[in-house]
């Protein structure tokens, strides 16, 4: 992007850029790359015996297939929850971003601020607040009671036996809520870049507003949707906070499993293998998604 123009202003570096990069790169090397390699080592290791907590590198690739075999349902659930939450984030976030970008006027910054402000409080406190909102005596169920919707919500699997906590609704709802700004902001940025006179051009060519939106605006905003999807889907599929606080035993996601393997079962090899399988699936999903919907413009 604008490579040529940037190059012209840049200077030719000899040793200076490397000196400036050194501390940061060293940190990443030491505390990202090396730990990843050690994680890989554990993923290919076996415990020497049941209780010592020592592992031996035996190149046991079956750790990976075991991980998928034993926790396939949690993997499926994680990606299903993350996928649904991502779609919900687009459905909720796109119109909001569109409203701010096109109708915000001089209140644009204020409205953007309102999107970000809720996330100035602690992630966990926010998530726990949802247990109050969705709780058995909370406002959501009171409203559905008042409207006599309880039966309908049960039938739609939104509630289970009239309750909302410890259901998939709660976990997906929590994920959607917690990652919504990561969808709104990139979509807003890409909408903001669009020349709105394109809409007038479309109108002059007798396009209806709806058609102008779908044919002109939406395709141009896809880089934002793409970036937002990555920023939502990747952390959501590895999240264990929402499942831990809002879900029950039947809503465990793969993040919860990895954490349990470390801290409850002390099984470092399985936890490491699970981590790599999770990363592998995410990478494949992102590459496929990029091939299908992606654009060259990733850096929003």
């Amino acid at each position: 992007m604008a490579r040529g123009g940037e190059d012209r202003n840049q200077r030719k570096g000899t040793w200076q850029p490397y000196a400036m990069l050194a501390p940061g790169m060293l940190w990443l090397l030491l505390f990202f790359l090396v730990p990843m390699l050690i994680l890989l080592r554990y993923a290919l290791s076996e415990p020497t015996d049941r209780f010592s907590g020592k592992y031996e590198l035996t190149f046991r690739f079956a750790n990976f297939t075991d991980a998928i075999g034993d926790f396939g349902s949690q993997f499926l659930r994680s990606f299903a929850y993350a996928g649904i939450a991502t779609v919900l984030c687009i459905v909720l976030g796109y119109p909001l971003a569109y409203f701010i970008a096109t109708k915000g006027g001089r209140y644009k910054n204020l409205l953007l601020g309102l999107v970000v402000v809720p996330f100035f409080t602690s992630y966990l406190v926010r998530t726990i607040a949802w247990t109050t909102i969705m709780g058995d005596n909370g406002p959501l169920l009171a409203i559905s009671d008042g409207l006599s919707l309880t039966g309908l919500l049960d039938a739609l699997k939104i509630t289970t036996n009239g309750g909302m906590l410890q259901t998939q609704t709660a976990v997906i709802g929590g994920l959607t809520y917690n990652f919504l700004p990561f969808m709104v902001l990139p979509i807003y940025v890409s909408l903001e870049k669009i020349d709105l006179r394109l809409l007038d051009a479309a109108k002059d060519l007798y396009s209806t507003p709806r058609r102008a939106f779908w044919k002109v605006i939406f395709p141009l905003s896809l880089p934002g949707v793409f970036a937002g999807t990555l920023l939502t889907f990747i952390p959501a599929s590895g999240d264990f906070v929402n499942a831990q606080f809002l879900g029950g035993p039947n809503q465990q996601m793969i993040g919860n499993v990895i954490q349990n393997q470390f801290f409850k079962l002390n099984d470092f090899a399985t936890a490491a293998a699970l981590s790599f399988v999770l990363m592998f699936i995410i990478t494949v999903a992102v590459l496929v998604y990029a091939r299908l919907f992606g654009t060259d413009e990733l850096s929003v």
């Binding site: 505390f31 050690i38 994680l39 554990y42 590895g238 470390f262 981590s275 990363m279």
Partner: peptide, 26 residues
Amino acid sequence: VNLFLVLPLTTPEVVLGASLLNFFVF
């Protein structure tokens, strides 16, 4: 360098945590 910078951002937090935990234990 650009690619190396993006990698930690595209790694799920639980995996970053797992790698660091294994590193510190190791």
